[in-house]
Design a protein around this nucleic acid. Structure first.
Lengths: 375, 375
DNA sequence: TTGTAGGCGTTATCAG
DNA sequence: CTGATAACGCCTACAA
């Protein structure tokens, strides 16, 4: 075993010594190849290869004043969609993990976790767009998560040249402090008084198209909104729905079915109340596809048929919305394009940073008609 | 407009001045809260908040000797699955991107890009497991990509404490140089003479289960393998297939249908040759789900019915394999668990770094029987 | 409990 | 074209 776990990484000094040049030449060999004679450059690169030298990103970042990395931050909030009890590896590590044996299928909990209604979701598709664009731009991406406390956010801010965020409602003020030092993009936030960039969809546009379809094609006038009105998006969508109904001379319901993202449990009692009171609407208009998934489960549990007894619609157009029975009529956001747009904005404002104003990129969503509305 | 794009980020010095303490106290306020009086700590934290201070990850990384980040690297190879001509934003930026208008749906090319056969793929599900585990561990993730040239890899190595990789065949030697300085995990690579960690599945196990099913339940003895034998995985799977057939006294075909990941085009001529020669097998056993997707398309184009005329099977068990018509009989890898395992290994070897030997974690895959085999 | 000073590995600015 | 040398921002003994 000629192995020696050096642990210590080789540095420019090691390479310089090995190649018998100064450390400046080593640096040049990588960053300014043209400012070096072919001979020395080759000698340096060769020495570097021999030693397994990898330039320290930290040191470079320090010296240059920027890391070159673009960040995407998700708040714990968004992670709640995962069942915390499903920790596939917590029990596993004790087992064959160390011993070199084969880990049996049962210990992977794979059956439990593979669920198209849990992945890929809205955020996943946006994230993918962000990654693809960063790859195209040749920039590494840093994914981080944490609470929206100052320290957690600051920690992320300190590592990247620009940051895209799925914001929680309380987030904006915390972020505002960092806005002068690095560019920040907020996904799906209505315009505000801050100086952040924004990438979002025209919720009103999408909702109007949906309501119009429900009214004109299905004669559905009594629409019930399903969602949690904490998120700005949900509020915008609901308001647009009400507004369009009023414009058609219809007085909208005030009540909203409150639904978090977790499952059908919280919806069932609310559903029963409607059923018992003979107050079932013509259609349930959900704030998100996930809300619709939960609602479909709840309706099935209560023996209500979709779309025969009631219409259900979603919002987002995630992959999962194609896989429900019946497939979901929904409003699709161009998620990948949104992620790409965010990456573009950040990469642009960072490069030589022409402040060039604040971006507010608004995409047009699209009504996708499937079976759940009766079409 | 009281705005001032300082551009310069506040540092410990700024905070120290603002709070009227030394820079050490500022550092302590964040890293060693206990070594400071409550009063000063509050004062410092307050000043930091006021200034929008974010500790520089680069500086900290330099001082500490490690960045705290775990990396996941994908080679360009893997990106080829995306159609390079589909650059949704390349044309878009000129348009409403800057002007503040709404970007029309057509310009997002969303219809073209939303394809469950392109996302999420095998790598995407593994990546997700990696991310989830890193989040659970409170560690940021760095995603990078690039060719397998020394410089590209070194660049990534220099930014992380540990690196997980989907390796291309030529990769191992390049990586070997860095193995002494940081822990490296290879996905889906057969054991080799290097010192990398490995996370993989038991390909033989899976393939034996599949061949057994095809023989016993469907009497299919003439199996044709479909895939590209460049990837180690594909070779292992094919060998296992041949071996199992021989064990049953059946002489396997030598010929392999060569298939890259792109589409049905390259398969159609090979298919025609079989059809014309009357050499159609009982079943096509594909090296990956993606190969199977392409093959299904090719068969459809040629008017061959599945499973009536011929059986088709996949390997991986991606989400897309549920969505084909007919749904694909395939062998599922516990992808999320594999990603999590890699993260665990890296986080573990980095912390206080007990070298503790090299991990070779092997998962058991599972035969998933669906319609494409005639069941 | 708080302040001082040296070092982490690069980059960049100068001389030579 | 090459070689010293001073930042870069933070961490951490060590001193006060």
């Amino acid at each position: 075993m000629a192995e020696e776990r050096t642990t210590r990484r080789p540095t420019v000094y090691d390479v310089a010594q090995e190649a018998k040049v100064s450390i400046a030449s080593v640096s040049f060999a990588f960053r300014r190849p043209d400012k070096l004679s072919d001979a020395t450059r080759e000698r340096v690169l060769d020495a570097a290869r021999r030693l397994g030298y990898a330039p320290s990103g930290a040191a470079r970042g320090l010296a240059r004043g920027r890391t070159g990395i673009l960040g995407l931050h998700a708040f714990d909030l968004l992670l709640e969609r995962f069942d915390p009890s499903a920790q596939p590896l917590s029990g596993m590590q004790a087992a064959a993990f160390d011993s070199g044996g084969v880990i049996p299928w049962e210990q992977t909990y794979d059956d439990v976790l593979s669920d198209p209604h849990a992945f890929p979701l809205y955020v996943d598709e946006v994230q993918r767009g962000f990654e693809l664009e960063c790859w195209a731009l040749g920039r590494p991406v840093m994914l981080s998560s944490g609470s929206d406390t100052d320290v957690s956010v600051a920690d992320t801010v300190g590592r990247v040249d620009g940051l895209a965020i799925f914001p929680s409602p309380q987030t904006a003020p915390t972020l505002a402090r960092h806005s002068p030092s690095i560019p920040i993009v907020l996904f799906s936030m209505a315009p505000g008084g801050d100086h952040h960039h924004r990438v979002r969809v025209d919720n009103g546009h999408g909702m109007r198209a949906l309501v119009t379809h429900l009214l004109d094609a299905h004669g559905a006038t009594d629409l019930a909104f399903v969602g949690r009105l904490e998120a700005e998006d949900a509020v915008e969508r609901r308001n647009a729905m009400q507004e369009e109904l009023r414009k058609r001379g219809i007085r909208p319901r005030d009540a909203v079915l409150d639904a978090a993202v977790r499952g059908p449990d919280e919806l069932i009692p609310q559903l029963r109340a409607l059923l018992d009171g003979g107050r079932m609407p013509h259609a349930f208009v959900c704030a998100t596809d996930q809300n619709a998934f939960a609602l479909l489960d709840a309706l099935r549990a209560e023996g209500v048929r979709v779309p025969e007894d009631v219409i259900v619609t979603g919002f987002d157009g995630t992959l999962g919305s194609r896989l429900t029975t019946p497939p979901l009529t929904t409003i699709r956001q161009p998620m990948e394009a949104m992620g790409r747009a965010a990456a573009r904005i950040l990469a642009g404002s960072t490069q030589s940073s022409p402040p060039s104003g604040i971006f507010d990129v608004v995409f047009e969503p699209r009504l996708v008609i499937r079976g759940s509305c009766g079409c």
